[in-house]
Amino acid sequence: MTDWADDSIDLGSPSAPTEDVLPAPKVIEKGDQIIKIFYKWRENETTNKKELVKVTRTFVQERVKTSKRVAARKTWKKFGLAADDGPGPQEATTMYGEEVMMRFIAADQTEEEAEEEDEQMNKFKRQFEYFNFFQGFGGATSTRPSATNMDIPSVSIKDATGGKYVPPRRGLAGGFTDEVPAIRVSNLSPAATQDDVQTLFAKFGKIARIHLGRDRRTNESRGFAFINFHHRDDAQRAIDTMNRYGYDNLILSVEWSENRKKENATEASKPDFLKRQR
């Protein structure tokens, strides 16, 4: 059987097809490569004539270090239905499938999500979940991180506010970032890094926080950023100056972001993971 990967050369139809007389197959070893050449007859579908075809197959030998047990098993004789099979994978039982890709879910974040998202907060959320998980674990193993050898700052934050959860950047940690709403910069070049945005906007005043929207998986910039200035005037000046400003062949769009976070967060709007108690 020829397959598309074989390098076959059509030798043309010989004048008098001499059946069963095929040139002898050759096996050439070239370093790690084994080249097998053999000849076969093929029926030409259009002319209905037999053609001699040269088929060249190139194999690359791989050397893999394994344990003695595994190496010994490789020399075992085949048995059962496979007893008559030759060495190597058989075409009848082993096939190579089409390329498949793992489909990642939520690989891209929307702008709304990114606005809500706080990297610190996200990390804290996950740490909280890990902490809870290993604490609730039956204790069959001592190699896992336990409550004692994990320092989680979040616990103290939780206690200080009487058990009520307060996001780390609000209340306890100064809280001025939320007084000035973020400005949204869109149509940024994907090549722009956080530092680029920093240098671009630093001249307007002190910046409290920059969030660059990134693809969660590839970590590439998605062309938008949120910037929190310490002072509202600085932010306003940045908007007035930088809106429709050309940067890296693109025209920036800078505006106030709608701050959809309500100050009086109620119990119902707490993140899911805080509601769940085992």
Binding site: V64, W76, K78, F79, G80, L81, A82, A83, D85, G88, P89, Q90, T93, T94
Partner: peptide
């Protein structure tokens, strides 16, 4: 590693 069938248990 290569998908070769070693045998069947009948």
């Amino acid at each position: 590693d290569n998908g070769e069938r070693l045998g069947t248990f009948e």
